[in-house]
Design a protein around this nucleic acid. Structure first.
Lengths: 216, 216
DNA sequence: CGAAATGTTGACTATATTCAAGGCAAGTGG
DNA sequence: CCACTTGCCTTGAATATAGTCAACATTTCG
């Protein structure tokens, strides 16, 4: 496929909020997140982006209001041409199908988060987030280390903005879960100490193991 | 395209929560909504479905946890074959492209709602919802009646479940906005009395006029 | 080393939830 | 036709969860 590569460092902007004709990207390595803000600065993180995720389909659609994308770590992106989305569908239906798949999958992540933010309390939200990020990371990791930790570059501010909580309340809840022995975050890595208890708290139904995903 | 039709009455289930191999649908007429529930019954409405919306792409993807779909009014659906999604991409790239477009558009609706639920207070959430539904309906209506009202089949329970609020608080907030002269809901129709004030309250940026949408 | 970002904690406040009770309108069965 | 039920809307009072403010500790980084 036609492309080039783009490297960004931690906390740099890939797509500005409101930008409507951004190019298409794939995240090759590192973490990023999508977000929206209100005019007074309140920010909502919509979803976290991990390697393999597709970026920019919504902006291509020149839709209602767009969202921004910023890196959480140093990251490398695969850059597509401006009209790549249409070209891709025409030249390779199977690739087009995969794009639809990835877009739908991306939406289901947002659905999950909306359920949390709308209907779970702070403890439940955090438990849910920790489990989901842990599972997504575990599914991606090439080195199948059975030891607990996965990389975890989020600050508490990111967690708060993702879950619709204040920073202070996020901190207190996080500490409480840690004191209950459910998890630990240390040196940018997340360790789940009591997965059963976390899952009970999160009330996960279909236990959501990440499905096989196509590569684009 | 290959299909049949399906008619449901108000408050009937199109797709059960957890169902993973549902067929593909398009909503031809009427209203419906997508939702998830927690095991203790707390429900979150993810998005409202209006004529022209595409249904079931996520379930096709056998993803994490699926969502349910229920009608809000009598509704008619266009039913596709089981493997329609792949066939469609292969036989008609432009249709495949449209499906991607619709899926991305659907996600942006969820994004908007997540911003509301995560970062807006009750007044702001309700103002945002009223404006968005009003605009979506207005964009669809064939008879270009300039008079205010659009159909509005939601109960306050639906509004509450969509915005992550309790029924009681939704009711009180709704009444306050009505007393401020911002809107009126009567006989299943929604009237916006002071659009400017509502938009100020909702803090809409890109003012989100609905884009041209492809038909599937 | 000092500055800036991030994390931690307590006290106070506010927004939203829960509980409880009642009203109104539409539909049902005797 | 009328009691009776049911679903939806409305309201007030008590409670709880989460937000705000403020201060300080700790870590990171230039």
């Amino acid at each position: 496929m036609k492309k080039s590569e783009l490297s960004l460092r931690t906390d740099e902007v890939l797509i500005h909020e409101g930008q409507t004709n951004a190019r298409l990207f794939t995240l090759l390595s590192g973490w990023a997140f999508r977000f929206k803000t209100l005019s007074d600065g309140r920010r909502q993180i919509l979803s976290f982006l991990l390697p393999g995720d597709f970026i920019g389909v919504q902006q291509k659609m020149a839709d209602a209001a767009a969202h921004g994308v910023t890196t959480l770590t140093d990251a490398v992106f695969c850059v597509f041409q401006r009209d790549a989305l249409w070209t891709l569908h025409r030249q390779s239906p199977s690739m087009g199908f995969n794009v639809t798949w990835l877009t739908a999958h991306e939406e289901s992540l947002v659905d999950d988060n909306l359920l949390s933010v709308g209907r779970r309390n702070a403890q439940e939200r955090i438990a849910t987030l920790l489990i989901q990020l842990y599972k997504r990371m575990a599914a991606i990791q090439t080195d199948n280390t059975t030891e607990d930790g996965v990389p975890f570059p989020l600050t508490q501010q990111h967690i708060a903005d993702s879950l619709g909580l204040s920073l202070v309340h996020t901190n207190k809840t996080l500490r409480k879960l840690e004191q209950l022995g459910l998890h630990r975050i240390e040196n940018g890595r997340l360790y789940l100490r009591d997965v059963m208890a976390l899952e009970r708290m999160a009330d996960l139904y279909g236990d959501g193991r990440p499905p096989q995903r196509p590569l684009v």
